[in-house]
Simulated assay, not measured.
Amino acid sequence: MELRRNPTRAVRVGSCTIGGGHPIAVQSMTATHTQDIDATVAQVLDLEKAGADVIRIAVDSPKDAAALKEIRSQVKANLSVDLQENYRLAEQVAPYVDKIRYNPGHLYHHERSKPWQEKVAYIAQVAKDHDCALRVGVNCGSVDPAKKVDDYGGDENGPLLASAFEHCEYLDSIGFTRYVVSIKDSDPKNVIEVNKRFALQRPDIPLHLGVTEAGLPPDGIIKTRIAFEQLISQGIGDTIRVSLTVPNNRKHEEIEAGRKILADIAAGRVRSFVDFGLDTLNIISCPSCSRVENEAFIDLAQQVKEMTAYAKDHKITIAVMGCRVNGPGETDDADLGLWCGPNHVNLKKGPVELGHFKYDEILPRLKQELDLVIAEKSGQALTSS
C-alpha cells in the first residue's frame, strides 16, 4: 500500500531529498574512530552498499575535521556530521558534508555567556555558505538546562518540545528553512508522543525518527518498530535511523532493519508490539559510534543483559552507555546507569555517582545494586498496596 505522508517541505541533503513526498530516507552512523581514515572509509562504503541514504560521522576536534576532509575525497555518499559541544567546528567540516547536526542542549557547554541564538545563526550561515542542510537534534539526555519539567506542569516531554519549537521558530525568523528535526527518547512511547505533538503543530517540517539507545538486537529493533509503526502509519516521519548496539562489522544491520521495518509498514505487516518491555526490565544502550573509547562496551552491554535476566519481571531501567560525551547525562533517568571509559566503567544510581570499576569488576557490583533496587521497589509496592 502507499504510505500516507504529512505535507512536509523538501530538504535536500546531497543527492537525497528528505520530505516533500520523497521516499523515507534510511540513515546510520559510522562507529570507527574518525581519525582512522581507512576504517571509516571502509565503513561508509559498507553502509552505502547496504542502502544507506545518509551516513553520519562524529567530529569532536580539529584532527577529526582534518580526517573528514580526506574521507570526503574517497567517498561519494551523502555525509552528515555530528557536532557536540564545540559548535565552531561547523566551519571546519561544512565544506566536506551535506548536512550538519547540532543538539540544542549542547550549545550551552561552549562560550556559555553567548546567547544560543547567536550560535545557531553562526551554524546556519556556515550551512548556507557551504550548501548544507541542518538537523536540529533534540535528545532526552541533553536538553536546554533552563527548561525544567516543573515549568511545563510536570509534562516530562515539555522541555523537549519547547526546545524543538523555539529553534524552528528562530531558524525560520532568520530565513533558514533547509532543516529537519529529530526528537528522540529511549522510550518508544515518549518518541511516539513527542513526534505526534510536534507534527500536529508543525506538519511542514520534515521529521527524523529514531529511538535513542534502543540497545541490542532483537529488542532494540522491536522498540524501534513500536515507534515507527505508530508514527509512519499516521503520515509522520521522513527519514529514520535504527540505533543498535552492535560491533563495528555489523553496523549495516541498522540499515537492513530500517528498510525491513519500512517494507513491512508499507505492506500492512504491522506487528504492534505496543507494550513490549515497557513495564518490565528495560536495558537501554547507545549505538556504537566513534566516541566509544573501549569496544569492550559492546560486550559489556550483552553481559549486562544476560546477568540481569533474573529481574525481567521488575519495572527497572538499566542504561549502558559507551562514552563520556553522552554517558553521564543520559544515564540520569535510569534506575542504574553505566557509562564506559577507556579502562573503567562508571556506575550510577539515577544521577548519583557510585564509583568507577574495572571492566572485569563491574558486573558483581551492578548485581548488588540491582538487588537493592529490586528490594526498594518491592518495599514501595507493599507499602502502597
Rank of each mutant, 00 (worst) to 15 (best):
F357V: 03
I240L: 14
K49A: 15
E330Q: 10
Y108D: 11
S113I: 01
H110I: 10
L107M: 11
P115D: 09
S182T: 08
N195A: 06
Y87M: 03
D219S: 13
T32F: 02
L209T: 02
W116D: 04
K189Q: 13
D38W: 00
T30Y: 03
A127T: 03
T239D: 13
H344M: 14
D332W: 01
Q302N: 05
R241V: 05
N157K: 07
E156W: 09
D371M: 08
E369H: 15
V320R: 06
R56Y: 07
T17H: 03
K349Q: 15
K147Q: 13
S378W: 12
T239S: 15
A164V: 04
K260F: 00
P188C: 07
A77G: 05
A319Q: 05
Y102L: 12
D82W: 04
I205H: 02
K315A: 14
L200I: 04
N343L: 12
D185C: 15
E111F: 11
D360Y: 08
D313Q: 12
F165T: 02
C168W: 05
D144C: 12
G175D: 03
I374C: 08
N195C: 08
C323M: 10
I318Y: 03
L89M: 11
I261T: 08
Q234I: 01
D150N: 12
G327M: 11
A375S: 13
F176M: 09
A25K: 11
I374Y: 05
Q92S: 15
G14C: 07
A65H: 04
P206V: 06
G14M: 07
Q201M: 13
R101C: 02
P247I: 01
A67P: 07
G327A: 10
Q35F: 01
V181R: 06
L207C: 09
D275Y: 10
S272P: 00
S28Y: 08
D151G: 13
A319P: 02
P62H: 07
A311N: 06
G105C: 10
A263K: 14
C323H: 04
Y102E: 04
N343M: 09
R225C: 04
V138Q: 04
V325T: 06
A199L: 05
M1R: 10
L68Y: 07
Q380G: 11
V75R: 03
T17C: 13
H314V: 00
K189I: 06
P7S: 08
A10M: 10
S73T: 00
Q230E: 15
D129I: 07
L68A: 02
T308F: 07
N139Y: 05
H167R: 06
E213T: 06
A311P: 02
L161N: 05
A52Q: 01
E295F: 10
K367R: 14
R259H: 09
E169T: 10
I316V: 12
G153N: 08
E293C: 11
S272E: 13
A214S: 13
C289Y: 03
K63E: 15
A58I: 10
I123P: 01
C168F: 06
A227W: 09
R271A: 14
